[in-house]
Amino acid sequence: MVVGGRGTVAPPALVSRFSPDMADFHYDPEKNYDEQTLEQQRHIEQEVASTQALVSERLSLNQLIKDYSMEDNIYQQKIQDLRSRYRDIRKTRGDGNCFYRAFGFAYLERLLHDKSDIPRFKEVVNQSKTDLVALGYPQFTLDDFFDTFLDVLSRVESSCTPEELFDTFNDQGVSDYLIVTWRLLVTCYLQRNGEFFANFLEGHRDIKEFCCQEVEPMNKECDHIHITALTSAVGIPVRVEYMDRGEGGLVNHHDFPECSKPAITLLYRPGHYDILY
């Protein structure tokens, strides 16, 4: 199951923009399409960025009803089920970073109200940085990302208001630096527990290759393995409510790690994560 962002966001305008070329497209194995692919990806990213905030305001779950047609019984039923347990949703941008952004915002927002977990978490972050240096990562860039991350955390600890946290997460520069750091926390945990996680990799990749291809690069979506690693690495349990097209009318959830008491709850819809309240 691949989850986390891009799949849901192909605005109709883009389809028309690219389809004329596609009509007389013949694949030439001698040619390198990489630049074109990146270019097209860039267009999609810009389109998404202009219509979706990195992190939205808290919205009533009633809003979700409008996202689906009234005839869509499966989803309408599931929204009702969701509403029996949750009130609000906070949406994140579908840019492939949505899991990290949702997870990060939900956790720091929680810390605003209960600061008791901050010292423990800071220690985890600092230890991961030390471990990454030991794994051969350049201290120089690690400092840059981790300093920003710890700075935001310190502000949460001292004087940050909910509005300031919201602004921080919607400031693309800082917000993306936080994403890089979460990704580094995942890569660190995966590599330090490589023997265990290697069992879950498909294909012929080793854990280091997997991290370089699927974890560290920006905009790479989050899969089960990433969530398992992140929640274990930072000791922040999360519940994910899965709202998909499956029959039954109920939204099922999964807790990471299993049998934990979740600190935050996210809503998963195929390809995307948002925050639930």
Binding site: P138, F140, V180, C212, M218
Partner: peptide, 10 residues
């Protein structure tokens, strides 16, 4: 792809 750009590069 494993040797591609990553934010940690300097």
């Amino acid at each position: 792809a494993s040797e591609r750009w990553l934010p940690v590069h300097t």
